[in-house]
């Protein structure tokens, strides 16, 4: 079976700007693939090219076994898209919006009517189904977009920053829908985000993208591990003898630093090492005054690979406007 998405040298240029620059990536079927990058990194552009909204300037991409240049319409039929901005028609009700979407896919009404209601129930919008979208809150709109993206029974779903501007509860709810889509329906999901904890908690694999390049691909654990490992801080009495060398001999420990009354130990697996260290200290008859274990966050990995934090990028006027509209609606 072919991969869900495979690109080679995929490029999209705007004048001199290479929004997507020779992208090579493979997304396996059933995978929840995260695309993590700062503003302007090229995430939306990549999704737009893969969903045939934009034509690539170069390179190849195969989506669900279909070449996007040769069979754009078949690709559109098969994939679902939940775009970054809200696209629902404010003057129509939630249900009307989904039905309209279904019509655009050519799904007969006999099927789309029950299916639309099921999807609305899935995202807990059935009570608001007959209300105009202009009365929806930001979280409701986001969930409606999610439901619309599922109307054509896609096996592969693209989600562009699905939790942008949502509060904690709604974000958690959206995460749960996403997990459910993967686990219960075996869907392949391609998700972009610039929330690190989102990528960390959801994704099987993450590609960190910057300036249209992929700078790193790996599982969240791999990415974090590549930064260094867990940090254990062990407090001891100042008068105790220095046993750094003994600690260093423990199998998983990578590095030990001793200051006046504490050790800073880097370990590949922090949990195991801490127990071994406590045992070691005890066996020497020394007291542990405190102990703490810190896992590296994706933040650190991210900063290391992109060389900067979340950055403001000058967007085109249009994007800025859409973004503002999205935030404005999200806040309501």
């Amino acid at each position: 079976m072919t991969a869900a998405i495979r690109t080679s040298g995929l490029t999209k240029r705007y004048g001199d700007v290479r929004a997507v620059d020779a992208l090579d990536l493979t997304v396996e079927r059933g995978e929840l693939y995260g695309f993590l990058g700062p503003n302007g990194a090229g995430k939306t552009t990549t999704i737009s090219v893969l969903t045939t909204l934009l034509t690539a300037s170069g390179g190849k991409a195969v989506v669900d076994g279909l070449d996007i240049h040769k069979h754009p319409n078949e690709v559109r039929r098969r994939v679902g898209v939940v775009p970054q901005e809200y696209t629902a028609d404010e003057d129509l009700t939630g249900l009307q919006n989904i039905l309209l979407c279904a019509d655009l896919y050519g799904i007969p009404r006999s099927d789309s009517k029950p299916h639309a209601m099921e999807l609305l129930r899935l995202v807990e919008l059935e009570d608001a189904a007959d209300r105009k979208v202009s009365t929806y809150s930001g979280g409701m709109r986001r969930r409606l977009e999610l439901a619309s993206g599922l109307i054509n029974y896609p096996k592969l779903l693209f989600l562009d920053e699905p939790t942008l501007g949502l509060d904690v509860q709604t974000r958690t709810a959206v995460w749960n829908y996403i997990r459910m889509l993967k686990e219960e329906y075996r869907m392949t999901l391609f998700l972009t985000t610039h929330y690190l904890e989102e990528a960390d908690s959801l994704c099987d694999r993450i590609a960190i993208i910057d300036h249209g390049h992929i700078v790193r691909i790996g599982t969240p654990t791999e990415l974090k591990a590549s930064i260094g490992g867990d940090v254990i801080v062990v407090g001891v009495a100042e008068s105790d003898p220095d046993i750094s060398d003994d600690i260093r001999k423990l199998s998983l420990v990578k590095d030990v630093k001793k200051s006046d009354h504490e050790y800073r130990i880097k370990s590949e697996v922090g949990e195991e090492s801490s127990i071994q260290i406590i045992d070691l200290l005890r066996s020497k008859g020394l007291q542990v005054t405190k102990i703490s274990l810190t896992k590296p966050t994706l933040d650190e990995a991210y900063l290391e690979f992109t060389g900067h934090g979340i950055r403001e990028e000058e967007a085109s006027k249009m994007d800025a406007f859409k973004h503002r509209v999205t935030l404005m609606r999200a806040r309501r």
Binding site: R76, P83, Y86, T87, C101, L104, Y105, G106, F321
Partner: peptide, 14 residues
């Protein structure tokens, strides 16, 4: 185009 509906329509096979 402004409110994104056009993109939605363009992402379907219509």
């Amino acid at each position: 185009r402004r409110f994104g509906f056009m993109n939605k329509a363009l992402s379907t096979p219509v």
